[in-house]
Design a binder for these strands. Sequence first.
DNA 1: CTTTAGGGTTAGGGTTGA
DNA 2: TTCAACCCTAACCCTAAA
Lengths: 142, 142
Amino acid sequence: MGNQKQKWTAEEEDALHRGVQKYGAGKWKNILKDPEFAPSLTSRSNIDLKDKWRNLNVGTGQGSNVKSRTLKPKLPAPCAVTTPDPTVQDVAPVQNATPKIPSQNSSEKDHDVKVPPRYNGMIFEALSTIQDANGSDMNAIC
Amino acid sequence: MGNQKQKWTAEEEDALHRGVQKYGAGKWKNILKDPEFAPSLTSRSNIDLKDKWRNLNVGTGQGSNVKSRTLKPKLPAPCAVTTPDPTVQDVAPVQNATPKIPSQNSSEKDHDVKVPPRYNGMIFEALSTIQDANGSDMNAIC
DNA sequence: CTTTAGGGTTAGGGTTGA
DNA sequence: TTCAACCCTAACCCTAAA
């Protein structure tokens, strides 16, 4: 056994991100063949790149994914516990959880990336490179 | 809150064991879909099978098993210096029982050796009680 | 035929209940 | 606290379309 699940490292992620920015999303093979990112993705395939990108793109729309613990949807209940308490008026909509974007001014460009905490700005990059008219993330962005 | 955990019964365990022996570990869906074990695991999901098997396999590690508990490395150590490791030592020629039915074109093509890079080397665990004397886990991501 | 896009499944981690 | 079961996410494999 050697590698069952090779987790993506920051280096690989960065290479992928840069490749998408440069070549555009949808040109995995091109990125992989580039001598600039080739050494960084020596163990990755075009499919892997696409998969990673796809996985990274989840939640770019409106999916507010807050780590809300203490929630158990309990499913099939072979042993109906019989809950004679239909008073279910809990649900406190307090989780607005609006993804606050940290100062994303267009004129704010003093420096380049500084340890990106989250890949939230990925959409922006994809939009910039969407000029390829390849119909990639148009659906996700709009 | 009324969350009953359905414990695994001998029937289910036996079915799982047999399925692993027959199909091999990693084909949970296949086992679950088999008419032989399907009725036994009608209330189990592939994920459940995997989880059960994993939980059952604990203890084979023996010794060096430092499980850092109470520690949550939110961000993986960014190993900037990812030395390219072109160690191509995988290749596990294992017969795959995949019903690869050539949709159309039944022409005998010789270059059909296409052996899926599926590493399967965990079927012996069901036969031997004390197997795997090392259990070297190269979990080192960096 | 090569590559991309998508679907489905597996593997690992983390959390909760007993 | 530990063990077993369960849920979630990331990564991987397979298939279809362009």
